[in-house]
Amino acid sequence: MKLSAALPAAAVVAACALTACSDDGGSTVDYAPTPTVTDTMAMPSSDGAVAAGANEIVISGFAYTVPATVAPGAQVTIRNTDTAEHTVTADTGGTFDIEIEGGETATLTVPPTPGTYPFHCTYHSNMHGNLTVG
């Protein structure tokens, strides 16, 4: 076989092989790993905020996420996922005032008296939350 006849034959074989491997326009498969969710892993909510655990206040995106209710005198972990420093400061009475660096955690001892305790960040006037003790 001459070289001039072998080249077109090789091109036909290569074209057939590439066609067999090409996209047929059908559905695609996403091979991204599926995250494993555990009780201690916080997942973002639909609005981008990070979910808080049972006894956890999470600061994310310059907003607080708080548990629905906390037992009187309980220990609450405050997790700051922002890079900025924040506080969890009671609006009245000096009941609690926790300063927390970006990316750090701190612990708050909840007041022993049931009630709703409004709080804010002293550095960011738009950040407010309510801690319900019951």
Rank of each mutant, 00 (worst) to 15 (best):
1 M>F: 05
2 K>E: 13
2 K>D: 15
4 S>T: 14
5 A>M: 11
5 A>G: 04
7 L>A: 14
8 P>W: 05
11 A>T: 11
11 A>Q: 07
13 V>W: 07
14 A>S: 09
15 A>I: 11
15 A>V: 14
16 C>W: 11
16 C>K: 05
18 L>G: 09
18 L>F: 14
18 L>H: 12
18 L>C: 11
18 L>E: 12
19 T>S: 15
20 A>Q: 10
21 C>A: 15
21 C>P: 00
22 S>P: 05
23 D>C: 07
25 G>L: 07
26 G>L: 11
26 G>K: 13
27 S>N: 12
27 S>E: 14
29 V>R: 15
30 D>A: 12
30 D>R: 11
31 Y>P: 07
32 A>D: 13
36 T>L: 14
37 V>Q: 12
37 V>P: 08
37 V>W: 11
40 T>M: 09
42 A>E: 13
45 S>R: 14
45 S>P: 02
47 D>A: 06
47 D>E: 12
47 D>Q: 08
48 G>Q: 03
49 A>Q: 15
49 A>T: 15
49 A>R: 15
52 A>F: 04
53 G>W: 05
54 A>P: 11
55 N>F: 04
55 N>R: 12
58 V>E: 04
60 S>K: 04
61 G>P: 10
63 A>V: 09
63 A>C: 02
64 Y>R: 04
65 T>I: 07
67 P>S: 08
67 P>A: 09
67 P>I: 04
68 A>W: 01
68 A>Q: 15
69 T>A: 10
71 A>V: 04
72 P>D: 03
75 Q>K: 13
76 V>K: 01
78 I>M: 07
78 I>T: 04
79 R>K: 14
85 E>L: 06
85 E>P: 02
85 E>V: 08
86 H>N: 05
87 T>M: 01
88 V>Q: 05
88 V>G: 04
88 V>A: 06
89 T>L: 02
92 T>G: 01
94 G>E: 07
95 T>G: 03
96 F>T: 06
98 I>P: 00
99 E>T: 15
99 E>H: 14
101 E>M: 09
101 E>W: 08
102 G>I: 02
102 G>V: 03
104 E>Q: 15
105 T>E: 14
107 T>H: 09
109 T>G: 06
112 P>Y: 00
113 T>V: 14
113 T>L: 07
113 T>Q: 12
114 P>Q: 06
116 T>P: 00
117 Y>W: 05
118 P>Y: 03
118 P>S: 01
118 P>A: 03
119 F>Q: 00
119 F>K: 00
120 H>R: 13
121 C>M: 04
121 C>P: 03
123 Y>T: 06
124 H>Y: 13
124 H>W: 10
125 S>A: 13
125 S>N: 12
128 H>M: 02
130 N>T: 10
130 N>R: 12
131 L>M: 05
131 L>A: 02
134 G>L: 02
134 G>Y: 00
134 G>D: 12
134 G>P: 08
